[in-house]
């Protein structure tokens, strides 16, 4: 059976899953969740996802949610096709550094980028005014955390070492949207050359460009 992804093409957490599927050349069926109609809060949806969020996947009856867990599952299951995206699971230290990098994204990037996405991208779609105070605070927060990124990326090519992992890819969806709404911290080469070098490298991957194109085509 084909792997099924339940989500929204423009939603950042759905896009994390799609970029890994494309990196791994895994064919899948995409089922759009009608978020405006609140399908994801219906009791039948909650049976598969008790928190009423998206995305989730159904891989021949195996139901899984939470984007990072799904990214890891796909990367492990299809380890031998496409870019590895994870260190050898038997390598204790490399695995620990990959998990450190995933946590860095969750602690030092996403808490600032997701509110910007909500305010400057999500709210206008629904005809709601963005809260510029929240945006300002998050831009300042992100700006200071990127100094840590610069220190890491001055020493190595990617966040977990010299090979790309799911931790790098996890930055793509919100990073792309904040740039589009005018928060260009990732692209300021003179300020943080290594962050920008890294960002350009991951942003231009064909897998990600395909995800962006299908999201844009659907609007």
């Amino acid at each position: 059976m084909t792997l099924k992804v339940y989500g929204v093409l423009q939603a950042t957490f759905t896009q994390r899953v799609l970029v890994v599927l494309k990196e791994k050349n895994v064919s899948y069926e995409f089922i759009t969740v009608d978020w405006a109609g609140k399908t994801h809060k219906a009791p039948s949806y909650l049976l598969n996802h008790p928190f009423g969020q998206f995305p989730y996947i159904d891989d021949d009856g195996f139901i899984l949610y939470e984007s990072i867990a799904i990214m890891k599952y796909i990367a492990l299951k299809y380890r031998d096709q496409g870019a590895p995206l994870l260190p050898d699971p038997g390598d204790l230290k490399a695995t620990a550094l990959m998990e450190q990098a995933c946590s860095v994204e969750a602690s030092n990037f996403n808490p600032f980028t997701t509110p910007i996405v909500i305010e400057k991208y999500g709210k206008p779609i629904r005809g709601v005014e963005p809260d510029e105070e929240v945006v300002k605070e998050c831009v300042l927060g992100l700006d200071s955390k990127l100094d840590g990124y610069e220190l890491i990326l001055a020493k190595q090519r990617y966040l977990a070492g010299d090979s790309i992992t799911i931790a790098d890819l996890a930055h793509l969806p919100t990073g792309t949207i904040i740039s589009r709404v005018g928060v260009t911290l990732l692209e300021d080469f003179t300020k943080r050359p290594n962050v920008t070098r890294w960002w350009r490298e991951i942003y231009t991957r064909p897998s990600w460009q395909e995800v962006v194109a299908s999201a844009d085509a659907k609007i």
């Binding site: 899984l64 867990a69 299951k77």
Partner: peptide
Amino acid sequence: LKATALFDQALSIEYSN
């Protein structure tokens, strides 16, 4: 693989929710 994925899912639940 599946038990590991469900463990990773639980880790993310703590972090997200």
